[in-house]
Design a protein around this nucleic acid. Structure first.
Length: 828
RNA sequence: GCCCUGGUGGCGGAAUCGGUAGACGCGCCGGACUUAAAAUCCGGUUGGGCUCAAACCCAGUGCCAGUUCAAGUCUGGCCCAGGGCACCA
């Protein structure tokens, strides 16, 4: 065995060995129970960053652990390889996006191999390859056939930076999620997926996801945004046949309506303006439309509006109130119109104050006695006043009564409303899966027949074109014939949002080479759900919501038989440096390649797991890395120095017959197995698992330091301890474990063996400390046999001289004994 | 503004059920080895009091109350930090 631990020598060697012997290949058929461990696949941006390293190391340790525990583990990797950076690189460097992407993949695949991850590379996929996107297109057509993909003209989010539209989920505070450019509104005809049809299921099924962080479920719940309310129809006083429906969650406040406001984009707005107001209102509407999303949506900004000149009739009390348009009313939500109740809505209150509209109080705060004008909106429930026949009702009951009344009198109805909008999937970009649709003058929208898939990306395109997809510049692509009537027709030139590609990739890993079907349903039903999904919390809504939607649709199309894709979800924290997110602009990045070269992958893996629990942020620390490197050297030396006294096929000796130091070492071995097994099984507490490895190593050092020579008994017990240690560490530092295993006489691979078992009865000490408290304060520590009786503990404690000094002359009020823990004597 | 999460030494973080607060590591200090240094091995390291030293005592898990024999852990109120949502009617 080498004097020193030199990772650069051993890591490459074992990576090659593992690959040549195909030890991470996962068969579909197996007697063992299945376990599907999955990391969120990366965008091939060029090189790995520390966030990747952390993500994949966590999943790898789980996969290796489960494999040793006897599971048939599926642990695949692939590439989310469509997307804008490739195209931008193409524009800047003149390279083809495909070349750029594929060479990045090659580099990053090497990096992943250098990290020693236990992937089954036979299952690798890349979403930009035709044999993958063929099936993305096929799935789009499934949605189309189900009536879940449709095209409509709509006001959509346009990112000038990316020169494409975005889905709602991809706009963060009015900015593009990718490039942070200010998002504009544009009216365009675009493809949507009807995710709103599944709003209720997506909400309900969150309850099934016991293995998800509450935080993520809550974010999805808020995003779906279910609310219960009532639609009330207001007739326009000046026009006979027009009604304006409003959605409200507070029908109990309808007697407090003093105006009604519609969105500036309200479709019927033209008819609702009186002649003399037309110029002013059109000016206002134009202004509102020009405003950017952030300005418009800001709650800081003062709300504005303008009266249209017409009026509406309150269906409950017949009152005539003015009709306004205001930029705080959103056309996309509810009916695009709101009833103004200044007394009981914060926004309406602001609006009424500004424009001197009346404020009519109709809900009374039951806790407030004296009459005083409202200084702010009262939005809590209360007792209804000034509300005709509903006066004196409790407002929560009033909601129901008024809704009933509206239904009986045909002026409204109860309604459930969701905040979730349909998913806009068209992108005016090249590097994505083309939407497989043909437009024919005769037949209209015609889906590309299955046998003509994939619709391949053309190569004769001008990437620099603005405002439309570069694909539109390819005449060979655009011009085609209609599959129905064979007459000349045009292809759809937009590509799909890349989130579509990533909504089903975990299914394709199961059957990656199938060229007949999207996947074999039986195999998918066998392997799914993903038992453990690991990735960043930034996908809490986007990717995770879309994937859940996909699975539900595929289930309803008969392609699979489960409701949810991801059984358990671990959202790992970020990797920071000096307390801040690593970024090139801050100059605080740490390059994984450099760490691999200087310290080896095992040190990187060990450090990234040991300093923080996985879901928390991790601050990168050079000295921490150094410490991990030293620890691995320490383990190496331990083995090196005891090497000649170690027996690979050691005997399990009868614990009762062992010398004290050997039974102690055996007990520590069982303890270590128990604690590390539990730490990894429960919540993946790798940081505490690592610290227990270190404690165990320290213990063995103590043992070894006291020995000059080794008896046969010593050798067997020490061998068990050290070989067990190596196995416990093998998921975390796979190369070093493999090397030591072979040095000690192992054959094959340590990663194909079994996780050590522990015996609970041997993991317990014979003597344990018992704390003695007097009036709750620790005064003495006793050492007593495990499982001593309460009487025994009490007698021993009372006999103790120090305890005596505290209890003599005092009256004992109470004695509490917690077995194997402590005794508390209460005295007066 | 609303919702969520978290606040423990110089630092990262431990602490099944309420039961020894500070495991393990980093850093720092000391000892051994060495001509010397590095590396290594061993020991110390919450603050304060007392002491030559130890023993011992007091305080201590963001702040203030409470429940309990016993609170980092439970309850109520507050402060601070981080995250999510944000004119969704």
């Amino acid at each position: 065995m080498r004097e020193q631990y030199i990772p650069q020598e051993i890591e490459r060697k074992w990576q090659k060995f593992w690959e040549e012997n195909n030890i991470y290949h996962t068969p579909n058929e197996s007697d063992k129970p299945k376990y599907y461990a999955l990391s969120m696949f990366p965008y091939p941006s060029g090189r790995l960053h520390m966030g990747h390293v952390r993500n994949y190391t966590i999943t790898d340790v789980i996969a290796r652990f489960k494999k040793l525990k006897g599971f048939n583990v599926l642990h695949p990797m692939g590439w989310d390889s469509f997307g804008l950076p490739a195209e931008n690189a193409a524009i800047q460097s003149g390279r083809n996006p495909a070349d750029w992407t594929l060479s990045n993949i090659d580099y990053m695949r090497d990096q992943l191999k250098t990290l020693g991850l236990s992937y089954d590379w036979n299952r690798e996929i890349a979403t930009c390859k035709p044999d993958y996107y063929k099936w993305t297109q096929w799935l789009f057509l499934e949605f189309y056939k189900a009536g879940l993909a449709y095209k409509k003209e709509a006001g959509v989010n346009w990112c000038p930076g990316c020169a494409t539209v975005l889905a709602n989920e991809q706009v963060e505070e009015g900015l593009c999620w990718r490039c942070s450019d200010t998002v504009e509104k544009k009216k365009l005809s675009q493809w949507f997926l009807k995710i709103t049809d599944y709003a209720e299921q997506l909400l309900q099924d969150l309850d099934k996801l016991q293995g998800w962080p509450e935080k993520v479920k809550l974010m999805q719940k808020n995003w779906i945004g279910k609310s219960y309310g009532t639609v009330l129809k207001f007739k326009v006083a000046e026009l006979d046949n027009i009604e304006i429906p409003v959605f409200t969650t507070r029908p109990d406040t309808v007697f407090g309506v003093t105006y009604l406001a519609i969105a500036p984009e309200y479709p019927l707005i033209d008819q609702l303006i009186t002649e003399e107001n037309k110029d002013k209102v059109y000016d206002y509407v134009e202004n509102a439309k020009r405003m950017s999303e952030i300005d418009r949506a800001s709650t800081e900004r003062e709300k504005t509006g303008i009266p249209l000149g017409t009026h509406v009739i309150n269906p409950l009390n017949g009152q005539k109130v003015p009709l306004w348009t205001g930029d705080y009313v959103l056309v996309e939500y509810g009916t695009g119109a709101v009833m103004g109740v200044p007394a009981h809505d914060v926004r309406d209150f602001d609006f009424a104050k500004k424009y001197e509209l009346p404020i009519v109080e109709v809900i009374k705060d039951p806790n407030k006695k004296e009459e005083a004008p409202l200084s702010e909106a009262y939005i809590e429930p209360g007792i209804m006043v000034n509300s005709g026949e509903f006066t004196d009702l409790e407002s929560e009951i009033g909601k129901q009564k008024i809704t009933q009344w509206a239904e009986q009198n045909d002026v409204g109805y109860g309604q459930v409303q969701y905040r979730l909008r349909d998913w806009l999937i068209s992108r005016q970009r090249y590097w994505g899966a083309p939407i497989p649709i043909i437009y024919c003058d005769e037949c209209g929208i015609v889906p590309v027949p299955d046998d003509q898939l994939p619709v391949l990306l053309p190569e004769d395109v001008d990437f620099k074109v603005q405002g439309k997809s570069p694909i539109a510049t390819s005449q060979t692509f655009v011009n085609t014939t209609c599959p129905k009537c064979n007459k000349p027709a045009k292809r759809e030139t937009d590509t799909m949002d890349t989130f579509i590609c990533s909504s089903w990739y975990y299914l394709r890993y199961i059957d990656p080479q199938n060229d007949q079907k999207v996947f074999n349903s039986n195999l998918v039903n066998h392997w799914m759900n993903v038992d453990q999904y690991v990735g960043g919390v930034e996908h809490a809504i986007l990717h995770l919501l879309y994937s859940r939607f996909f699975v539900k649709v595929l289930r309803d199309r008969g392609l699979l038989n489960f409701d949810e894709p991801f059984e358990n979800l671990l959202t790992q924290g970020m990797v920071l440096k000096d307390g801040a997110k690593m970024s090139k602009s801050k100059g605080n990045t740490v390059d994984p390649d450099e760490i691999f070269q200087n310290y080896g992958a095992d040190t990187a893996r060990l450090f990234i797991l040991s300093d923080s629990p996985p879901e928390r942020d991790l601050d990168w620390s050079d000295t921490g890395v150094e410490g991990c490197y030293k620890f691995l050297h320490r383990v190496w030396r331990l083995v090196k120095n005891t090497h000649e006294n170690l027996i690979f096929n050691y005997q399990d000796l009868n614990p009762a017959s062992l010398a004290k130091e050997n039974s102690d070492l055996l007990r520590e071995t069982h303890k270590a197995v128990k604690r590390i097994t539990l730490d990894i099984s429960n919540e993946f507490q790798f940081n505490t698992a690592v610290s227990k490895c270190r404690e165990f190593v320290n213990y063995i050092y103590d043992y070894v330091n006291k020995k000059e020579t080794y008896s046969d008994e010593d050798k067997n017990v020490l061998s068990k301890a050290i070989l067990t240690l190596i196995k416990l560490m093998s998921p975390i530092v796979p190369h070093m474990a493999e090397e030591i295993w072979h040095e000690l006489g192992g054959e094959g691979s340590i990663h194909l063996t079994n996780w050590p078992e522990y015996d609970d009865s041997l993991a317990i000490s014979e003597e344990i400390p018992i704390i003695v408290q007097i009036n709750g304060k620790v005064r003495e520590k006793l050492t007593m046999p495990v499982n001593s009786t309460n009487e025994n503990i009490e007698a021993t404690a009372k006999a103790n001289p120090k305890v005596q000094s505290y209890i003599q002359d005092k009256q004992i009020v109470k004695v509490i004994v917690v077995p194997n823990r402590l005794i508390n004597i209460v005295v007066k």
